[in-house]
Write a protein that binds this DNA or RNA. Sequence first.
RNA 1: GCCGGUAUAGCUCAGCUGGUAGAGCACCUGAUUUGUAAUCAGGGGGUCGGGGGUUCGAAUCCCUCUGCCGGCACCA
Length: 648
Amino acid sequence: MAQISLTFPDGNARAFDAGVTPAEVAASISKSLSKKAISASVDGRHHDLQWPIEGDAQIAIHTMDDDAAAYELIRHDLAHIMARAVQEIWPDVKVTIGPVINNGWYYDFDRVEPFTPEDLGRIEKKMKEIIAKKDTVRTEVWERPKAVSYYEERGEPYKVELIEAIPGDEPLRMYWHGDWQDLCRGPHLQHTGQVPQDAFKLMSVAGAYWRGDSSRPMLQRIYGVAFKTKKELDAHLTMLEEAAKRDHRRLGREMDLFHMQEEAPGQVFWHPNGWNIYVTLQDYMRRRQRENGYVEVNTPQVVDRKLWEASGHWEKYQDHMFIVEVDEDHAREKSMNALKPMNCPGHVQVYNQGLKSYRDLPLRMAEFGSCNRYEPSGALHGIMRVRGFTQDDAHIFCTEAQIEDETRRFIEMLAAIYADLGFTSWRIKFSDRPDQRIGSDESWDRVEAALRSACEAAGYSFELNPGEGAFYGPKLEFVLTDAIGRDWQCGTLQVDPNLPERLDATYIGQDGAKHRPYMLHRAVLGSFERFIGILIEDSAGRLPLWLAPRQVVVATIVSEADAYAHEVVAALRKAGLRAEVDTRNEKINYKVREHSLGKVPAILALGAREVEERSVSLRRLGDKHQKSLSLQECVEVLAAEATPPDLR
RNA sequence: GCCGGUAUAGCUCAGCUGGUAGAGCACCUGAUUUGUAAUCAGGGGGUCGGGGGUUCGAAUCCCUCUGCCGGCACCA
């Protein structure tokens, strides 16, 4: 029999018979490893203990102590155990796929009746029974025709379709636990009892299209989470509760920031507190843009369809546009208009007024552009995904030679802004040419190279998002990670030679001839609505003082302090702070509690002592204790902290 | 848009199998002058999301529309 050489993580190599399984390898090392082994890595691929190894390879045996392997196997096995449980309870349910995802898995089923929350409990119970049986997991490699006819006989059309989609040279693996069987890529544990019985939970059921295609049947997807121990599961569930507490919709109400209502779905009614955040952020962005050489413009909301036809939006994006038909009785001529879904065509109109020279480029044209897009109803989500929003939009008109430098400058500005707003963890995704595109390969080569070297020059690496660019040009996306580890795509930069062409933007070059500028579409925050939602959730409502809508509340302990309280508020306001007085006839405990829940960053308590000393007792949000300081000192400290970071 | 769920007082929620609505907090009034996360007492407040139907009778059952929630699809 042929010999192969397996190299272990410590660098030692040993000879084995070809076709040896990782289980046998583990057994040859030690009895205890043999018992503890759950899977292996063979040349970096996650490998079942039962699969034979045919050639020389690097091998590592995994135990439950190897988190990545353990979670993968536990969650994957649970997906199958759940599918088995479902089919044991409802034999006519058809199975499809069940992959591992973050923290757990899901499995999609085809069943006429909807799964109810009570059903989830039933399934969970059945799963525990299956785990208790400790059924051995068996695997076989089947020939394609056998597998197809097997599934056809059993009335499992989805599995047949899956088999047909698997490349011809890949082995078809069949898995069994007990009598139940599924097609699966593997690897798996050795028996169902290896899955921790109390460290998983079925979370929800939701619709999902077969193969992610909205023209295909809607299946029912059951989501589960799973860990190695109950303790980890409980920690995860607690984390979800904590995340729910920072939901911007909840905090938006608790902090009285905004509301939304049925008559204006997907649009925000900003309350004074929320509007304070909005305006403060906008003022900040305006200063940053001026500092970086942008000019600010403003363009119309309701624009005749002719312009949208010229820009290409009418043809491609009409479904997402609010169409406004002007009534004949009220208008001189009947016309079809649309609310602007984007600012770029308007900016080209501004650009096109008067001749532009190469000396005018780069021209950085910014607008806090109020846009309306008819988003599908199911896409709406609080103030994060809306139909009416304002972008921190700008278009940089430039020559091809200027793309690199402008991109670098943009990245640097964006980095400074994210840092000011408390986001230090973010990354760049680079989307290059898609299959469907316009323009020559040579020009794509040049423009993509410009974006790459701009990232390098700014000192940032990027991850490639192959083929995800716009049809007209490549793009950079800036993804930030919030305090609880969620990713948000906010900033973007897209290179566009197409729109200047369609809307006939030109400049006179050094040679006296007309040339076509490029446009860089770019945004830092994306939209104010969404970004404020992110800020609220990232900070759990505890915004930094400069952004906090209510900065200071001056609360009296006794009514004798009322006059002094008004004096303190006046002093704070004179220093530019947003300060309120609370002289209600309530105990200080009550006031502290209420303003703390309202996320007011600074509470000043005033009693007889403070009046006497002309001092204040300062309690910062989140602190257990307070500090006594003079009125003047307090005003100075708070005013300094409330200064926006770019003005410090 | 699709699948499922859901809609009761400002908020959070109760209201079993149909018999014309209830709690806590909030709000208002009064008392209390209070030292850092809820002082006490009293009071007002809802055509039960809209429309239609079944029924002697509908918050409750059915249909339909709308919003919201969780996903999926979408996100130029």
